[in-house]
Design a protein around this nucleic acid. Structure first.
Lengths: 161, 161
DNA sequence: TATTGTTATACTCTATAACTATA
DNA sequence: TATAGTTATAGAGTATAACAATA
């Protein structure tokens, strides 16, 4: 069977236990990512990358290169995701601010509406879920999410083309 | 806005704060899922769904329908993922045990080797990451992961909308 | 008729390499 | 030469609908 040099049996809260717990919960967490967040029905429906990109533009970003860094995807991937948003009439491309190689991405009025509606729907859905947790559990979750994010840094190399 | 600081007052541990924290960390967590887990290089490389499917078969599952439920994907998607594993020589299809409609999925020796190597590599990588956390933080993370899983049940969400 | 699994179809995400235009 | 962004290409994951074989 599998062996591991991290295996410590003294406590449940050992790295190996967390590792196995995380591996065990991943399919479900992944499913949640897949269907919990792009949760708005009908014409508002967005994929998760589209939702992230739209939120990113909503919060002030405007250059594709910044978008690709924020979303941590390659530039061609950012182009594809933006293409989808443009095709849906949620984003417009325009001339860049400083440099004629650059492109400015702007939300259309529809894009702004969809982004706000979507963010609100996701927040409300999450709030309903988190209403099932007490204050201590919420605080624990908040801190744990930050720990997880800090400790699972992907390798520092960026997705560049 | 939320800080990376660890001192948190009581008002921050509200459902809405957790919701926003989770939404804010999602792109990074998603990136981690994408590249942290299928971390074995070269011929051992597996995508995340392939890794999950292989692990599932390793742990005793053998029917495509069970696989699709465990992975929480549609049956056609399970077929596609299994196709990829078969093409890589890691899985074989055979006759079903009880019912001639069924198909039995079996790991090949290579599939078994790749699965063990991959699981071990992922566990070790997670252990290295979690080594940066203290016992209290690990315990908190363990409990928070369980809370998150319990409270974000996709099936628990209302379907009548 | 219902179930198991696959096919057919269509779409999105993803990356690397090559390209265009600009700097 | 270097950079910003797109195009070309290839491959994987995803779902719904339709289908075949079996129950």
């Amino acid at each position: 069977m599998l062996t591991n040099n991290c295996d410590i049996n003294e406590s449940e809260a050992a790295p190996i236990e967390c590792a196995r717990e995380l591996m065990g919960t991943l399919p479900r967490l992944r499913r949640i990512l897949l269907e919990f967040f792009p949760c708005v029905e009908g014409h508002l429906a967005l994929t998760l990358p589209q939702f992230f990109a739209l939120s990113c533009l909503y919060s002030g970003e405007s250059l594709p290169s910044h978008l690709s860094r924020r979303l941590m995807v390659s530039k061609p991937t950012a182009t594809v995701v933006v293409d989808g948003l443009v095709k849906r009439g949620l984003v417009e491309r325009g001339a860049g601010p400083d440099d004629r190689r650059q492109v400015t991405l702007r939300l259309t009025p529809a894009g702004r509406r969809v982004c706000e509606a979507h963010r609100q729907a996701v927040e409300q859905r999450l709030c309903r879920a988190f209403a099932g947790l007490g204050t201590d559990e919420l605080q624990r979750l908040l801190l744990a999410l930050r720990d997880l994010q800090r400790v699972l840094q992907p390798d520092a190399q960026e997705k560049e083309t």
